[in-house]
Amino acid sequence: MIVDFPLPELGEQVSSATVTGWMKAPGDQISKDELMLEVMTEKINVEVVSPYDGKLVEILADIDADVSPGVIVARIEIAD
């Protein structure tokens, strides 16, 4: 089963963030709580971890893209 992975909420005052790096590439296995990407807000850099065990199948937000919390940034294949 493939699930959408949205950028999580990053704080009450954060309306957008810039993707600064992906630690995984499509096809890579990923474990729950493993670092998947980094984003930068106006105030801090944030490390975003995977909520799932599975395989990263698609990246939807390129490096330097501005994304808002809730926007789908990746898709992960997980076991049913």
Results as ranks from 00 to 15, higher is better:
M40K: 14
F5M: 10
E58C: 05
L10E: 08
L10Q: 04
L10T: 07
V73M: 12
T41P: 01
K32Y: 01
A74G: 01
G54I: 05
P51G: 05
S31A: 15
Y52A: 02
D28T: 03
P8K: 07
E58H: 03
E42M: 08
L56D: 03
V67D: 06
E34K: 13
V71F: 00
V71H: 02
V48R: 09
I63F: 00
M23D: 13
D53N: 11
K43N: 02
L60G: 01
M40I: 11
L60V: 00
T20K: 13
D62L: 11
S15W: 07
G70P: 01
V67H: 05
G11W: 06
L35W: 04
W22D: 09
L10V: 08
M23S: 12
S68Q: 12
L7Q: 03
E12S: 14
Y52C: 05
V39F: 08
Y52M: 07
D28E: 08
V46A: 06
V3M: 02
G11T: 08
V48F: 11
V49A: 13
M1N: 04
K24N: 14
K24D: 14
S16Q: 15
D66P: 00
P26T: 04
P51F: 03
F5V: 01
I78M: 02
V48D: 03
S31W: 00
L56M: 08
L7I: 07
T20V: 15
I63P: 01
I30R: 01
V19A: 12
V73Y: 10
I78T: 13
N45L: 12
E58R: 05
N45P: 01
D66L: 14
I2W: 00
S50H: 03
E38L: 07
E77M: 06
N45R: 08
E58P: 00
K43T: 08
I59C: 07
M36Y: 07
M1Q: 09
F5W: 03
A25V: 11
Q29N: 15
P8G: 05
M40A: 15
I72P: 04
G11E: 12
N45M: 14
Y52L: 04
D80K: 00
K43F: 03
E34Y: 13
I72Q: 04
P26A: 08
D4P: 03
G70I: 10
W22Q: 06
S31E: 15
D62V: 03
D4V: 00
P8L: 09
E47F: 03
L35G: 12
N45G: 02
I78G: 11
T18R: 15
I30L: 12
D62P: 02
V73C: 13
T20M: 10
A79R: 07
S68N: 10
V48C: 07
G70R: 12
S68V: 07
E47M: 07
K55V: 15
D64F: 06
L10S: 10
V48I: 15
E38G: 11
A17C: 11
V3F: 00
A17G: 07
P26D: 09
Q29D: 15
E47Y: 01
L10G: 06
T41Y: 07
E77T: 05
V19D: 07
V14Y: 02
L35T: 09
P51H: 05
V39N: 05
P8W: 06
A79K: 14
D64K: 14
I44K: 00
K24I: 10
V73K: 06
D80P: 08
